[in-house]
Each structure stands twice: as C-alpha cells, then as structure tokens.
Design a protein around this nucleic acid. Structure first.
Lengths: 225, 225
DNA sequence: CAAGGAGTCAAACGACCGTTTGAATCATAC
DNA sequence: GTATGATTCAAACGGTCGTTTGACTCCTTG
C-alpha cells in the first residue's frame, strides 16, 4: 500500500503556498473577510502552519504586502532611473515619469489574465484598507519611492511648489488605486465599455497617463488658460 | 426613588442612534471590522435592536449607506441643475461641473471638524469596500448621477468620445475617493503639509478641481501639445 | 545508529460572531 | 382598566474566529 498522494514535504513550499493562497484570497475578499482556516484549507496545509511560519495573521498580511509591493516599487525606481539617465542634465519628460510610476502596479504580476487582475485588486486593497498593514512597514516601503518621484516631478514642473506637487501625487495615486481596485468589477466594466482587453496594462496606461500628465501640468504656462 | 436615568424610550431614537453609531464605527473600522455588539454597546441599546429595526447586519450597512449617499447625490444633481440653468443653451464651464460632482462628498456632512472627517472616510469606504453593499442599491444610487454628469461633461468636451469621458470620470472618482478615504490619516497628513485646515472642503476643492479639469481636457485643442 | 532540531499534525482553548427566542415592558386605544 | 401592538430585554443558539499546545514525523548531523 503506497501512501495516498504523499504531501510533498518540500520545506520551502509550505511557506510559499501560504503566501500564494493568502494573496489570492485577500485580493478577493479583503483581509478581515478571509480566515486563516480558509487559507490553510485551500493551500492544503495545516492550520497551525501560519503561526509556525509567520507568527500571526497580521504578520502574514505584512508578509503578503511586502512580497507584493516590494518588486513593484523596485520596478518604479528602476524605470525612473532609466528615464532620468536618458534625460541627462535636462528635465525628463513628464509623461515618462508618470508612466514609470503607474506602469508597475498596473502590470502587478506577469501582466494580464485572471491572475494579474487579482493581484491588481490587492495592490488597490493595501491602499484602501491600509489600517491592516503595519504603519512602519508601509512607510518604509513607500518613502523612497515618494521622495524620488517627488523630486523628479519637481524638475518636470519647475513652476509648481513642492506642496502642490505632493497634493497632485496624492490625486495620481488615488486615480491609479481606484482603477486597480475596481479592475474586473462587473458594474464598472459595464460602464467603461464591454471590450475585454481594455483592462490590459497597456490599454490602461494609454488612458491614464495623458489624463494624469495634463492634471499635473494644470496652471503651468503654455497650457490652457 | 426615581428610576435612575430612565432610558428615554423615544421610538424613533433607537433606530437613529443605531444609524449614527454604526456610521461612526464603520467609518473608523470598516464593515467587517465592526461587530453588532460594539454598535449596540456604544449606542446604549440592546443587541437585538438591530435585527428588530433592520433585520440583519447587511441591511444595516445598506441603511447606513443609503442615508449617507442619498443627500450627497441629491446635492450633486441640484448643483448640476444650477450650473446648467445658468449656462442656458451653451455648454457649462467644465470647472463648475466638476465642482458640482466633487464638492458634495467633500462636504460630506455639516462640512468640517472631526465628524465631517469621519463621514468623509465612510464615503471613501463605500467605494473601496463595495462588496459589502447590495449591488442593486449601489447601482440605483449612482446611475442617475453618472448619466447626468456624463452628458454634461460631454457638452463641455465635445471632442471627446463617450468612452473616453467615462474613463476620465472613473479617474476623477478615484482621485476623489482616495482624498476622502485618507482624510485624517497621519501618514498622509505629514506628507501633504502640517496645516490643519488643508483638509477643509474649500481647500481640498481648490486643489482638486484644477487638477481634474486639466486632466479632463487632455488632448482637446487649445491645450498643451 | 542515536540525537536533535525543523516541520507537520489533530485537537482544543477562550473569545467573539450574527442571529433567534420568548418573556417583560411600554404606549396607546377601547 | 384592560386588551393590543410596538418595542426592549436578558439569555442563549450554533458557528467561526485567531491562537496555543503537545505529540508525532521527517531530515540532517554527529
């Protein structure tokens, strides 16, 4: 008698299966709406595994957040590095800076498909349900990104004072988060047109970037009165 | 011996105290994060009162949502009526249409102060945690507002196709929701400047409306290349 | 082969959840 | 004053929650 489907005791696998499953369920149901029992059941591991590997539900949420957002922010900074390198001494083009900021969360994963849409939702959730995430971790993850992009936007828009740029970054984040949070929502989809591929990162960026760039430029000379 | 502080059996009072308390706690802790026991305890009424007056927790959430959002949307439509009446045959000014859309949720209550900031957060939450609210109710509350503003914006921006306008309304809602959802967040407050009254509806609108108007106009002739 | 740490397991902990019940209490109308 | 319907009350329902425990299995190291 062979043991029926031996549980594959790969040591690293349990931890990552938990992160994968938790990420999926948090995206679909929110943090409060997802129980540890559901996560462990769907991951096919024991209930106690979460506390063994992470310590608590809050620590699991932080781990999921960290694994999700870290590569996004790294990609943002890499893209910004490239944009600034190409610009040399002069100011980089505003549209390219904005694209460096919004593209990584839109791509959110391998890019598109059902899995990508789910991770997109989670990117939105970590902003909208921020109170579940350790404030220290949240600040640490975003302070570099904020500072770098704030400086870059300041060079693109020399007439705007730093406070105005900060406010407009806030609006930009809001538009981006909302797009990403409602990706796949049937009610929204119905309003924005029935085409299935309007939610691809490319299509979203083509809609979002010109809107944000124009908003950022508001009041600068050379624009509409 | 007088009965120590008779519990004031005003029939309408229990129902409204429940709505008030639930609204406050939902704003602070979210829907899943608030229990019926906490609501009834802080409202000073019996636990069963919620099921007597509303029927279930979901029905209470819907009732809070309805009471919160209905006057906001009525105010939006009234303001839009006024703007269109003044414009007569011609197209109304874009800034005024946008202001008609974003001012009511920013004012959100009597206007400012701690109570206003809390209701603001709830306005954000009903968008960000939409899955807790009956879809029927949500659609019914917003379909008129969406249709009316979509038409008005179309008259302001005759060069844009309806789908583009719908997308840009989506971005506008996102920026507005995020502002309103993070109102009072200490991390955000620190970034946007320490002044306490930057979160008044007037100050917010002065920042938000020009940004959104410029974004809406993106690509129209007469604006920057 | 023995020892020991790493990982997994079933079971239980106390607490809290939304909901229901049935009796007690109130206001009102006869 | 008594019947009637509306409202409030304490208590309990079954269930699920996050967390903890202690024994058990596995793999590695000596």
């Amino acid at each position: 008698m062979t043991p029926p489907s031996a549980p594959a005791r790969d040591p690293a696998s349990t931890r990552e299966r938990l992160l994968d499953t938790a990420e999926r369920l948090f995206a679909e149901q929110g943090f409060d709406g997802t129980s540890l029992r559901q996560i462990t059941r769907e991951a096919g591991v024991n209930l106690a595994a979460i506390h063994y590997h992470f310590g608590s539900k809050d620590a699991l949420i932080d781990a999921v957040f960290d694994r999700l957002i870290r590569p996004i922010n790294e990609a943002r900074l890499e893209r910004l590095d490239g944009v600034e390198r190409e610009a040399g001494e002069g100011a980089p083009e505003l549209e390219r800076v904005i694209e460096a900021f919004v593209r990584p969360p839109l791509e959110a994963s391998i890019g598109s498909g059902e899995l990508g849409a789910r991770r997109m939702r989670l990117v939105g959730r970590v902003h909208a349900e921020r109170e579940h995430i350790s404030r220290q971790l949240f600040v640490r993850q975003f302070e570099d990104v904020f500072r770098r992009f704030h400086a870059a936007l300041g060079r693109c828009l020399p007439e705007l004072d730093p406070e105005t740029i900060a406010w407009r970054m806030h609006f930009m984040i809001g538009a981006m988060v909302h797009v990403v949070l409602t990706a796949g929502d049937p009610t929204v989809r119905q309003v924005l047109g029935p085409d299935g591929d309007g939610l691809e990162p490319d299509a979203l960026a083509r809609r979002l970037v010109p809107f944000l760039a124009a908003g950022m430029r508001a009041g600068e000379k050379g624009t509409a009165p």
